[in-house]
């Protein structure tokens, strides 16, 4: 147990240089993907407020040059948009289970 800890630390340190900072290109790609999913949700008339605010946060961070934060927010916005698309799609039939008959 005592030997494994330094080993793990060594491994972690050796991989550390691989985790590079996000670039503007990363941000633009992540933002474009999020924006596209968000538009699809809006077209389905099922946009979530949190998608809009998270996408706005990504843009603000990107405009300010904080690409790490911008990429994280854009990916979150994309996940939210995709969840809302899934919701709209599944609810096309699922709403009937709630109906009073």
């Amino acid at each position: 147990m005592k030997r494994s800890l330094p080993l793990a630390m060594l491994l972690a340190l050796s991989f550390a240089p691989m985790a590079r900072a996000a670039t503007e290109a990363d941000y633009k790609a992540a933002y474009a993907a999020a924006e596209s999913a968000s538009k699809e949700a809006a077209d389905m008339r099922n946009q979530w407020t949190t998608t809009v605010s998270t996408l706005a946060a990504a843009k603000k961070a990107g405009d300010g040059g904080d690409f790490d934060r911008a990429v994280t927010a854009a990916r979150e916005a994309e996940a939210l948009a995709k969840a809302s698309i899934f919701q709209a799609t599944s609810e096309k039939e699922a709403w009937k289970t709630m109906e009073i008959r």
Binding site: W48, T49, L80, A83, W95, M98, E99
Partner: peptide, 22 residues
């Protein structure tokens, strides 16, 4: 209108019926 009333929406996954029927 009925479909809209029973359809879940939003991040909270609520329909109108979630509050006002259930």
């Amino acid at each position: 209108g009925k479909r809209y009333f029973y359809t879940r929406r939003g991040q909270m996954n609520f329909s109108c019926a979630s509050c006002h029927v259930q």
